[in-house]
Design a protein around this nucleic acid. Structure first.
Lengths: 207, 207
DNA sequence: CACTATCGATACGGAACCGTCTCGTATCGG
DNA sequence: CCGATACGAGACGGTTCCGTATCGATAGTG
């Protein structure tokens, strides 16, 4: 029910005291997580079978169950292992910062590994609430907050009109990237980010 | 492999000549499609089982297979049966038209039946290309094109600046709605549409 | 009434997985 | 070397689902 099944805790003492027997292989652990993400990308959450993951990783099923209690536990660990570097806070102009962040997100979206996160997690959100909550809190929300920060900062510096709706702006920015990911042909990430930010800043109405 | 399994065609003659035997019930057909959409909404594409659909519809499995060749066929039919009325072309101002269309989309997104279309179809797009293609062509693209039309019209009337990027604007508008659907708390559809359109038109940069 | 196709229900074989368990082997500390 | 644990491989029972087949009952046509 927890993240790990079997005993793994330091057992109370100070130094990470060695447990007897053969230690677990870090390479095996990573191979399993990689295989899980690979399977996830091409088959979706429901499509992932632990039997298949074990084969991809060149590992026995018992090795999976020794570390995680089941499918959901493994999936949570796999998503967690994809620790994205948050796009730097930067600090130039609002336009430059937003462009950099959006470009980073758009570039991520071009990697099928990351792209499937957004899509799959939303498609199956009803059935894996634990997984989705964790993803939202640990990945999605920090990114959203970073964008909000830039916009709010722009309000204090006078770059952004004070009556702007931060939430709407956020939705327009992130929504553009997400929808771009859905397009049949995607413009290059950098160019797309530049144009999107510029236009959302300036608006499309005739002056 | 087609949409229907067994003989159903007019068999070549002019009038819809009656076939011998008990006729198929229209009520049964609709009950199956409804049950499919219901199951789809709460379980996702992979989660739909024809056995479950049959029970929900109060129907025998044979009745399903008599009409559709299998799961994919049934899913395509179910999505097709959800024929949304395209939001009217309208004709007032660009702002009013876009607001009305966006409000309609946002309202649709509040109906779990429709909401799951966007989400599920994208989450599992890799594995059901036929289904996704059909959905894109028949549902998504017409809506996108209608929005593009309004924006382009605004360029001719002088409401929209001539150098605006129609595709970016489209992504911002639709993306806002899609992302809104992902929020924990969603503003009411109408109000959201008004604010989003206004802000995308005017931009957020200080003048 | 005879004929025919559809109806709901349910049994069936086969496939895919899950989660458990048991092999024989490999790798660590002592 | 010994004890303890991890390892790959895979057998196993149980579950779910697919797609087919077989019921007797039903509802239309002629």
């Amino acid at each position: 029910m927890g993240t790990e099944t079997t005993a793994r805790e330091p057992l109370g003492d100070t130094t990470a005291q060695r447990r007897p027997g053969r230690p677990r292989s870090e390479k095996v652990e990573q191979a399993i997580l990689d295989a899980t993400l690979e399977a996830l990308t091409e088959r979706g959450i429901e499509g992932v079978s632990l039997e298949d993951v074990a084969v991809r990783a060149g590992v026995g099923k018992s090795t999976l169950y020794r570390r995680w209690s089941g499918k959901e536990d493994l999936l949570i660990a796999a998503f967690g292992s994809l620790k994205r570097p948050l796009p730097g806070p930067a600090g130039e102009s609002v336009q430059a910062d937003l462009t950099a962040m959006l470009a980073s997100m758009a570039a991520d979206a071009d990697d099928p590994r990351y792209a499937c996160q957004f899509e799959i997690l939303n498609g199956e959100s009803e059935r894996f609430p634990k997984l989705i909550d964790r993803y939202k809190n640990e990945v999605a929300e920090p990114r959203r907050e970073a964008i909000r920060d830039v916009i709010r900062r722009g309000m204090t510096t006078g770059e952004v009109r004070p009556d702007a709706d931060v939430e709407i702006a956020l939705l327009a920015l992130m929504g553009s990237v997400l929808s771009r990911d859905r397009q049949d042909v995607r413009p290059p990430a950098r160019e797309f980010a530049e144009r999107a930010v510029a236009q959302i800043l300036s608006g499309i109405a005739a002056k």
